[in-house]
Write a protein that binds this DNA or RNA. Structure first.
Lengths: 194, 194
DNA sequence: AATTAGATAGAACGGTTGGTCTATCCGTCA
DNA sequence: TGACGGATAGACCAACCGTTCTATCTAATT
């Protein structure tokens, strides 16, 4: 039997779950009850609700998940890039799917000075780097532009699937990604021949 | 000098502004103060905060705006469809831009039974119809799929521009739209020759 | 055995939430 | 003149918000 995690970890787990399901405006009382943790522990470990939210976003490892998905798809950059949308299809079809937690937090936190905005920004920048690198390997003529296009597609899929999941936005977006990748060098090669 | 609008209209105007800037979780007190309206009038006209939010979404006329933009772009379906992204570029560059109000409301209202979800759904369905019709006129081989792709692009632009406006997502998305439209019949013709 | 850090429970803080209530005012119409 | 519908101001409600506080308990360290 595994040991019960400490209060800090229990808080993070409960907050990750509740802020995704109910949004970042969920009350601290609900988080404390779900975590089975004393009120004081929250302020001891995170300084307050905002600190907890920031830590939840930082520890979410969503970017790492994209890397894993692409690694599992093999070494062909084209296949790796397309695998992203298969994963998005799985994610958006999950029962409790509520969109991208970063986008939701960005929209929910109207105050531009909220510390969470930095984490959100960092996450999307990191995603951009991942896609830009992969698109360069795929031989895309303009990896920087293509990376922005990829971000639009990913955010679009996650946003649209909340309201209209049966539209299968992940599949639709994969079609667009294929059009993009047709601009690249010979499809099956990791990099274009020089 | 024009007459001052009645309480109902003042409430809608104030709520439209405040819910966009601060999200639908903005307090009724703030709305009442901005509208210069008695507390009772809100419950008289809209039954409550939820009713007001629903009416704000219903009266937003965002779908009509897309029609106007396309009409202003002429009669060539291709030009009309691409004009959407020029408009999105303008919108996302506006100082107070805070994304798509419907997407924001969808994410903020965790309760699936909230009456606003119906309006949001209706809006995006209406957008789909508009795009599907235009894509059919442009001679796209699969207007239904293409319409979903267009929705992904639009939602993606509006979502992503909140966090990374300098990425110019509207321009990036326009490039993808051009790729899509290359699949259609002769670009400058309203419909493909049979 | 004594000390200490970390966790617990729970009261209490001032402020805000959406909603209901009473009372008053004002213009319209009969 | 009188009645009435609509608007106003503002008190009031219970519930909840994030935060601070005191007090107690427990387990590891010295």
């Amino acid at each position: 039997m595994t040991e019960r995690p400490g209060p800090r970890e229990r808080l993070l787990t409960a907050a990750r779950d509740l802020t995704y399901r109910h949004g970042v405006h969920v009350g601290v009382d609900a988080i404390l009850e779900a975590a089975g943790v004393a009120r004081r522990s929250l302020y001891q470990h995170f300084g307050g609700k905002d600190g907890l939210i920031v830590e939840v976003l930082r520890g979410d490892l969503s970017a790492a998940r994209y890397r894993q998905v692409m690694d599992a798809a093999g070494t062909d950059p084209r296949e790796r890039l397309l695998a992203v949308f298969d994963e998005l299809e799985t994610i958006t079809e999950q029962p409790g799917f509520r969109g991208c937690r970063y986008t939701a937090a960005e929209l929910a936190l109207a105050d531009p000075g909220h510390p969470a905005h930095g984490e959100i920004r960092g996450y999307k920048d990191e995603l951009r780097e991942i896609f830009a690198g992969e698109l360069a390997k795929a031989g895309h003529p303009d990896p920087d532009l293509a990376a922005e296009q990829y971000l639009v597609l990913v955010d679009g899929v996650l946003a649209h699937a909340v309201t209209r999941p049966e539209a299968r936005p992940a599949r639709a977006a994969k079609g667009l990604a294929e059009l993009m990748l047709n601009l690249a060098g010979t499809p099956s090669n990791p990099s274009p021949p020089r």
